[in-house]
Design a protein around this nucleic acid. Structure first.
Lengths: 208, 208
DNA sequence: GTATCAAACGGAAGACGCTCCGCTTAACCG
DNA sequence: CGGTTAAGCGGAGCGTCTTCCGTTTGATAC
């Protein structure tokens, strides 16, 4: 009969502690993926090759990262954490202190800058199911934040428009604008800016 | 020595005439794909099964439709042609005759209705490369049209905002809104409408 | 009818994502 | 330390998309 496992600390249970070998493998795998990416480009980062370069079985890659998108998301983890810290608790204009509208623009500009450096990785991270993009922690945090800023700024329908703005930050659209239509990042930011202006020109008919 | 082929009619050369067996196979394959879709759902529509049900080799499917997205696009062909006819030459509010702003809204609403009936097929059609969605005839026609309407309506930066609006009509976002957030089609249309209002509230400062 | 050739065909083979399941091992307890 | 258990591991195998290339065939000219 399976005896109930004793709970050493019933307080503050996170999403489950990771065993030592698991944590080790996570790092080894991320390192392998990064190396593959740097030396041969994104296309070379297949689950199979990452596993072999890391010296583990494929099953392990999936156990650690769920799927290819999960691996991409993990590779973006540092960038993501930095970004979140910046818009949640960092200095203005991105962080608290600036006017909501200013923060929204800063958020969008910063996101475009992130795409400029890591568009391909973002593209993979958005690849799973059609709705996969909308179902991960990073997306939800961003949406919640944007939605709140839009509310603060007095916009109509913040929930819808938060999703709308984030959809305009999809890697696919960015790559199309950037590398097929040859728009500069500034041009893209300007487009987003005018959209924000439009969004905020309604809602609060006159902010007096 | 290869003798030069005689040209029967040097006038009006289309994108290349399709040989009889090729045209026949195209129809057989589309029928097979439709049947599979109706009887077992979109997931059952794999290139392999379509080929077998049609009684041809897989190579033929690829020769006729290039890839899976091409097949999906072909399945949407009728709907697409109807839609194009409607907004290019049909009656108002979608076609010529109504005010540009009215036509823009009608365009978006109509697109949402199309997604409501064929979201899954659209999702597959948007699946190829990250930028695949932006590189097919249907997309380009829609973009040109929207861009022109935006110009007529006096919007700023019509080129950018045409892409923006079309990106908000992606199947992935629609499915997320519709089936995960449980928004009604009307709710989605309202969101798009308020965006359009914002877009057009600038540009022409006062249309007098 | 016959010759010719580009177009079309078929299906084997490759690459990749992902699943499944039997075996191994870290972690914890007494 | 030895027992117990959940977590982790490995890799064969499946399904799918896609490519490649040798063979076949429809269309045309003569």
């Amino acid at each position: 009969m399976p005896r109930p496992r004793h709970q050493p600390l019933p307080l503050a249970d996170g999403p489950a502690p990771e065993r030592a070998d698991a944590a080790r493998n996570r790092e080894v795998l991320l390192a392998a993926a990064r190396q593959l990416m740097l030396s041969e480009g994104i296309c070379a980062v297949s689950m199979d090759r990452v596993a072999r370069l890391a010296g583990v079985g494929i099953g392990t890659v999936y156990r650690r990262f769920t799927d290819r998108c999960g691996l991409a998301l993990a590779l973006l983890g540092d960038s993501e954490r930095q970004f979140q810290a910046a818009f949640l608790t960092g200095p203005p204009p991105l962080g608290p202190g600036a006017a909501p509208e200013t923060r929204i623009r800063a958020f969008l500009h910063c996101y475009i800058d992130r795409l400029e450096t890591d568009a391909e990785l973002h593209a993979i991270a958005e690849t799973s199911s059609p709705t996969g993009r909308y179902n991960n922690g990073a997306y939800r945090t961003a949406r919640t934040h944007l939605s709140w800023l839009l509310t603060e700024a007095g916009a109509q329908d913040p929930a819808y428009h938060a999703d709308a703005l984030l959809t305009l930050l999809s890697a696919g659209l960015f790559q199309h604008h950037r590398h097929e239509l040859h728009l500069s990042p500034e041009r893209i930011k300007a487009g987003l800016d005018s959209l924000v202006t439009g969004l905020l020109s309604q809602g609060t008919p006159s902010p007096n």
